[in-house]
């Protein structure tokens, strides 16, 4: 990056460190932090939408829809989330390639699943083997986002379902007494009022999401864990910057990053919680009222 770094073997001390920390691979490492942040930024709203749909479905008067909602909310209770993280991307990948196979491949009778292989013709591969590397990475990342959204959507559905049930019955009855239809009650009273009850659970979920992001590594995305292992591993004299096994320092840096994220989130969520409790018939709302008097 800097001109002085042209011949790393001659460098020493701080200037060596400065050059070492600005190599191309290190810059890729730093940008992979944005991959993690992007994952959280995309998954949080999508999972919230999934959870919302799941919670509404679980309360639906239509029986099959209710079954679906209940099954979706119950899914994460008994089964480890990491099973879904391994399962969903493979299924999505095979499903999409199979759909493309139906359109793009010549049907000469060769089965798709045979001899412990899943093989479709080159034209049906996703992404195409001729497409640039960036599309392979985007595709892998998208599958990861879908897997995360499904799992965290199920968690969120649990939270929102509980929150909707926690809205005091009297408030809904009041709305009914004003002659609102069930849809109006839901839109004007139930949903605005449920957030204060949902927030503790959703905050917790956000914390879980932060702590689940290293699992991207398992899905083959080049995330911070991948780069930490890659850069930290022993580098022999063949490399420009030879060093012994430094993985422990890189992983320690990740630990500090995650602790910082947790601390920051705690502060923001505390403020949000104080805002949402304002004027609510809850313990926090009552405490605020007393403090103000």
């Amino acid at each position: 990056m800097f001109d002085t770094c042209a011949d790393p073997k001659t460098l020493e001390g701080l200037s060596w460190l400065l050059c070492y920390l600005t190599t191309g691979k290190h810059l890729a490492f730093y940008s992979s932090f944005f991959v993690v942040l992007a994952l959280m930024a995309i998954v949080a709203p999508v999972a919230l939408a999934f959870g919302f749909g799941g919670a509404i479905a679980a309360r639906s008067p239509v029986l099959p829809l209710r079954w679906f909602g209940k099954a979706y909310t119950a899914m994460v209770r008994g089964i480890p989330d990491i099973v879904f993280f391994l399962f969903v991307p493979v299924v999505m990948d095979q499903g999409l390639e199979y759909l493309r196979y139906l359109y793009k491949c010549p049907h000469d009778g060769t089965p798709v699943w045979a001899n412990n292989e899943f093989s479709v013709c080159a034209a049906a591969k996703l992404p195409l083997s001729t497409s640039p590397q960036i599309w392979h990475e985007v595709y892998g990342f998208t599958l990861a986002v879908i897997a995360f959204s499904i799992v965290f959507g199920a968690f969120a559905a649990n939270v929102l379902y509980g929150a909707m049930n926690a809205v005091p019955r009297a408030q809904l009855e009041t709305a009914e007494a004003y002659g609102m239809s069930p849809a109006q009650v839901r839109r004007r009273v139930l949903i605005p009022q449920m957030w204060t009850y949902a927030l503790p659970g959703l905050s917790n979920l956000w914390m879980i999401l932060i702590k689940a992001t290293p699992l991207l590594f398992l899905l083959g995305v080049e995330d911070i864990v991948y780069w930490a292992r890659e850069l930290g591993a022993t580098k022999s004299q063949l490399y420009d910057y030879p060093h012994p096994d430094w993985r422990v320092w890189y992983v320690l840096a990740l630990l500090v990053f995650y602790l910082g994220m947790t601390k920051l989130s705690e502060r923001v969520l505390d403020r949000l919680s104080a805002r949402l409790s304002k004027g609510q018939a809850t313990m926090a709302g009552e405490a605020q009222r007393k403090a103000a008097v």
Partner: peptide, 22 residues
């Protein structure tokens, strides 16, 4: 409590392994 609740278990496993190898 803050360190162990605030960081991912995955990272804790990695870090512990690297430390134990040392």
């Amino acid at each position: 409590i803050f360190v162990f609740r605030g960081s991912p278990l995955f990272i804790q496993f990695f870090l512990a392994y690297e430390l134990l190898v040392m």
